[in-house]
Amino acid sequence: MTETTTQPATAQPPTRVAVSRRWRKIGNLLTAYSFIAPNFIGFAVFTLGPIVFAFLLAFMHWDGNNPIEWAGLDNFFKLFRDRVFIASFWNTIIYTGATVPLTLVCALGLAILLNQQIFARNFFRTIAFFPYVASLIAVAVVWNMLFHPEFGPVNMVLYTLGVDPKDLPRWAAGKDWAMITVIMFSVWKNMGYFMVIYLAGLQGISAELYEAADIDGATAWQKFWRITLPQLGPTTFFVSVMLTITSFKVFDQVFMITQGGPGTSTMVLVYHIYNEAFVSWDLGYSSMVALVLFFLVLGITLIQFRLTRENEENLA
């Protein structure tokens, strides 16, 4: 780090040096803070403030208009009586539990596939990545039409393949299928992004390892399990943390595809926060649900950090 304030004092009277030094120091300080201020003020007002507010609001009763009342732990105990919350809690866990490994495997598969020397490799990579940047509304609408239970092309194809009309999945409209539909959508939409991270990880593996394995006569399968996968450990850790956090925050696709239904079969935490806040205007309680989301994300991240460290220690 550079130290801008200490420049060699030359043959000047000590008092003047001290004074000019002090001024320079203040000047430097003002310069530094002037660099930070534009962003930090916005950040403090619109992010830090609301975060503090959120933690307080979880222990209040407020409908947004009438005066705020202290609620103590009322909102906390309400969580256990609220069936929609309990459903949304478990649904979020189920969604995350399925989406994270599926996306991980698909992204890794795609990355290995598109890391080979093939024609128009970048073109294929771009396509695999595109669903991730495509606007969610547009693709969710298409998804809804493709998986329409009565006349969507997917069910039409299944029907022509000989599936009995009674057994055709109801997708977003079916109690048992709605969550699967949302999960499939998420995996399809996000795997391109994590593929790119894996591609970067694959490029970091030294070619010498594979050459040595070739000399020893290792099969492709052995090379995958013994070299690729262990070498990608840090990447996999990173991807799984990112994926877990994103999965806990799921909202958009649920809102667009199933609206949390049928019943509460795809109700998730953020959707419940949204409903409690902007439909029921129970701001205190919705902040309590938000707090649950926060601790869930925090907890999972800590556990994952811990597991990886143990893993690395075991390997070492």
Partner: peptide
Amino acid sequence: LRFPYRNALFLAYIATIAMPWQVYMVPQF
């Protein structure tokens, strides 16, 4: 640049990166 509280301020940024926006969207609104 070097200035007092640099690391503390930066930590405030870092700490919020993992904080889901959905947690504080209601008070923000």
